[in-house]
C-alpha cells in the first residue's frame, strides 16, 4: 500500500470532514476518555444504555483523520446495538486492525468500518484507528479511562 488514496479511502475522508454523532451527552449512563499520549489524541465518549441497548452515543475530542473518522463510524455502527453486540464488534475490529497485513481478515458484520483494515500496513497508525473502539470497550465495561 503506497498511496494516500488506498489508506484514506473516500469514506474515511468524508467522516473526518463531517463527523457523525459529534458532541456531548449531558447525562450519559456510560462514558470514557481515550488517550493516545504518544500523539496527543484524545476522545471523550458518552453513551446512553437502556435495557442493554445503546440508545445514544456521542464523541468529542481531537485527533488525526483516522482517529476522528474511526470514532465517527464506530458511533454509527454501534448505535442501536446491544452491549453484547457492541463488544463483539469491538473484538472483531480489534482483530482486524492487529492482524498481519498479508492475512485475509474477517470483516463480516463490520460493514463500512472494514475500510480501516488498511491501517494494518501502518503499525504506527493502528492505535489511531482503535482509540475510539478501546474507549467504547472501556465505557461499556465500567473503566472510565483508556490510555494506549
Amino acid at each position: 500500500m503506497n498511496s494516500l488514496e488506498e489508506l484514506y479511502q473516500e469514506l474515511i475522508l468524508e467522516h473526518n470532514r463531517y463527523p457523525r454523532n459529534f458532541g456531548v451527552i449531558e447525562n450519559p449512563t456510560h462514558k470514557a476518555r481515550g488517550l493516545n499520549p504518544l500523539c496527543g489524541d484524545e476522545i471523550n465518549l458518552y453513551l446512553v444504555v437502556e435495557d442493554g441497548t445503546i440508545k445514544d452515543i456521542k464523541f468529542q475530542g481531537q485527533g488525526c483523520a483516522i482517529s476522528k473518522a474511526s470514532a465517527s463510524m464506530m458511533t454509527e455502527i454501534v448505535k442501536g446495538k446491544t452491549v453484547e453486540e457492541a463488544l463483539d464488534l469491538y473484538k472483531k475490529f480489534h482483530d482486524m486492525v492487529t492482524a498481519d497485513f498479508t492475512q485475509e481478515v474477517d470483516t463480516d458484520k463490520l460493514g463500512p468500518v472494514a475500510v480501516f483494515s488498511g491501517v494494518r500496513a501502518f503499525p504506527a497508525r493502528v492505535k489511531c484507528a482503535s482509540l475510539a473502539w478501546h474507549a467504547l470497550e472501556a465505557a461499556l465495561t465500567g473503566k472510565e479511562e483508556y490510555s494506549e
Binding site: 503506497n2 494516500l4 500523539c39 485527533g63 488525526c64 483523520a65 483516522i66
Partner: peptide
C-alpha cells in the same frame, strides 16, 4: 490537517519526518 496525517502522507512520497510531541510535552 493533523501532524500524523501529514507524516503518513509524506511517507507515501518517500519523505521521512517525525510527528508527535517529540518527548517535549
Amino acid at each position: 490537517v493533523h501532524p500524523h496525517d501529514i507524516g503518513t502522507g509524506l511517507d507515501m512520497e518517500g519523505v521521512a519526518i517525525r510527528t508527535g510531541h517529540h518527548c517535549t510535552q
